[in-house]
Amino acid sequence: MDIFLQQLINGLVLGSVYALVALGYTMVYGILGLINFAHGEVVMVGAMVVLSMISLLSSFPLPLGSELILLISVVSAIIVCSTLAFFMEKVAYRPLRNAPRLAPLITAIGMSILLQNIAMMIWGRQYKTFPDLFSITSYDLAGANITNVQIFIICLSILIMIALLLLINLTRIGRAMRATAENPSIASLMGVNVNTIISLTFVIGAALAAVAGVLVSANYSVAHYSMGFILGLKAFTAAVLGGIGNMAGAMIGGILLGLIESIGAGYISDITGGFMGSHYQDVFAFLVLIVVLVFRPTGIMGERIADRS
């Protein structure tokens, strides 16, 4: 039972990170119908900027508490990532808005290759360790361990997701975003500046990605220039699982995928009688995805029929 609880906690932590990244995918997809392959790299850039900022700030003899250092670093990561995403959209996606569907996909792939290798030039090939700003304390929860970092990750993700839902559903900007997702040309007739809204979508997605990058590198206490790709892939899977284009779907899909992965990793060997080890956890995750899509072809929450194919 305590093993189950432990995997549940790990899955929840992993899942909240997936959910934050998946939101970026799903918001962009909802409006542009574009798989933003470079979104994972934005997560990586966020993690890298935070690491650099923390070591930079710690090297000066400034009277800053570790909380303040972390805060400044995270804010600067959010600014860097948002700027990056803003220009990325402007340069690589906006000119192709009326192009065939696969053209922006290729520029997104190009962008991903570009960012990954520029990051490698800047931060090097080696794994970077997350500096221990805070002492990690572990709490006992009915036989399972949960660290303060993990509690922080879960709480922060939930807070951010609530804030985002409020933004989308209650504010004027949120209404404009929903209108643009529904139909860009009608939205612009109603006085919505579609270009601004699309830029804003990228900026918000990138800010979420920056936070996710910090959280994931704090959780595993490493960062690497190639970390974004696989994380982005998982998050995109989560977004599709939940029904791409649907915000609540991305959150549910992210948490579900995290849970499936960690519980699958814990139990897959028992289920298959020792034939498959925990190496197969991704197989398990993708099989669940395929099964879900076979029965619900537009994902768990996807009501709308995707006819952009």
Partner: peptide
């Protein structure tokens, strides 16, 4: 199994298949 899927849902399933 993917006959009913459209567009990007198909893309992610094929991607998963490749990884599997």
């Amino acid at each position: 199994p993917t006959l009913r899927l459209r567009g990007d849902y198909l893309a992610i399933v094929t991607l998963g298949f490749g990884e599997i």
